[in-house]
Amino acid sequence: MDKFTTLTAIAAPLDIDNIDTDKIIPARFLKTIKRTGLGRNLFADMRYNPDGSEKADFILNREPYRHAEILVAGDNFGCGSSREHAPWALKDFGIRCVIATSFADIFYNNSFKNGVLPIALPEEACAKLRADAAMGENARLTVDLARQVVIRPNGEEIPFEIDPFRKHCLLNGLDDIGLTLEHASAIDAYEARMPSWLPKIQGA
């Protein structure tokens, strides 16, 4: 997994609540067997006209936001399906951090697995950051994961909460499966004491 330490980048404002995973990456683009290449279709229905041309008023179609690496969104970001294609699409586009007042659980979880940092902040802080993100060329925020702060263009630091284990994994780019396999003997022991009536899925 990619590490995430600090990031200073263009932030794009997306002041919409309940951005669901169908908006982030519509179902018709899930027919891939790869993790990459989805950035082109990120927010496809909001970003493109039916003829494939860009919608000029969509934020990520405008300069400098085409190069945004941070999104500042509304409430309940990432609700809907479990598709990891959502963080894959964000990441493939170049987004490494999403700031919102709240996130849907599965999306939140999936983001960490892909080196995308979701930051939940109170509405007041999000409103400030959205205003910062509206400043065009000056819409640059810094995210310092080690210190757990978002730094505004005016230097103000906004602290955020994060689970220490997830922080550790992200800072060091650790692979969960490797970590879990350190518990292999505990898993063996658990399996040895499973009830005997528990059926197996076999011999279909």
Partner: peptide, 12 residues
């Protein structure tokens, strides 16, 4: 779960 976790469950 997401696909990373699908892999995690398959493996562990």
């Amino acid at each position: 779960i997401g696909t990373s976790e699908v892999e995690h469950v398959l493996a562990t």
